[in-house]
Design a binder for these strands. Sequence first.
DNA 1: ATCAATTAAGATGAATTTATCCTATTTAAA
DNA 2: TTTAAATAGGATAAATTCATCTTAATTGAT
Lengths: 144, 144
Amino acid sequence: MFSKACEYGIKATIFIATKSFEGQRVSPKEIAKEIDSPQAFTAKILQALVRHKVINSIKGAYGGFEINKKDIKAIKLSQIVNAIDGDSIYSGCGLGLHACDENHPCPVHDKFKIVRDELKDMLENTNLEELALNIKSGMAFLKV
Amino acid sequence: MFSKACEYGIKATIFIATKSFEGQRVSPKEIAKEIDSPQAFTAKILQALVRHKVINSIKGAYGGFEINKKDIKAIKLSQIVNAIDGDSIYSGCGLGLHACDENHPCPVHDKFKIVRDELKDMLENTNLEELALNIKSGMAFLKV
DNA sequence: ATCAATTAAGATGAATTTATCCTATTTAAA
DNA sequence: TTTAAATAGGATAAATTCATCTTAATTGAT
């Protein structure tokens, strides 16, 4: 469904959010350990998330990654996915047709549209705060 | 969503079905042309579909690929996808957790489950006949 | 100013997916 | 039984994704 990079990116962002609630910054090393991902690769993904302004990075001593507390609620899952995988997951044709719309549909166009729209809706209506709170409360997990 | 191989496989199977309605066999060359895919790669995918008994191959002169007319209605989209991509698309964890279930969920488990189940349902309740008829009637297209 | 702790970025490598090519095998027809 | 027309399958290559390594740039504290 999502690329590995995107999976790591989502998990990393959620972890950063849980730490940012407490005013703490985190390093790629700490993130990779917490989400069970390759550290250097994770660092690359964090760079992309910074470029897309999903997270902030503070360079130098006492630096790390963080998210403004007041932004956590406003960040949608769709923004994270978009920053890494783009929007092809819910905008492209299910069978890869270059042009696929109501006027020139692929054979599964209508059936896919329902699933795709539900996915898009879910991504756009899920915010980072609720995901992070699930982790903080121990109701959900980032690894194993 | 699906791999390229799976997209080609779905389109190829639909095309074979439209021809099988008329009792005609088709070659990888004809298929690749019709669905706008690389021919040799498509041939590999057809082999996999034959091994999974989604389509039949007749070797030798006057051979080609075909589907028994009476089977077309019973073949589900899920069988084609499964033959090529497996079931990870609707069985694996959305965030790639090795173990992810109600007792040890990832942060998006519940939200993903809804989308995943809808996708699974759609694939299992869409049969090859309806897809092929959409092509035959000119209501849907396999390329461009 | 210097130093140590950090993230950024470029180069490189490994693994997987996508794609091609060549040869073997099978089969119906002549 | 030979031949031509097919699919099957193995080897290889190209492209993309996943991952690592090394060095540069930045910054707070001393």
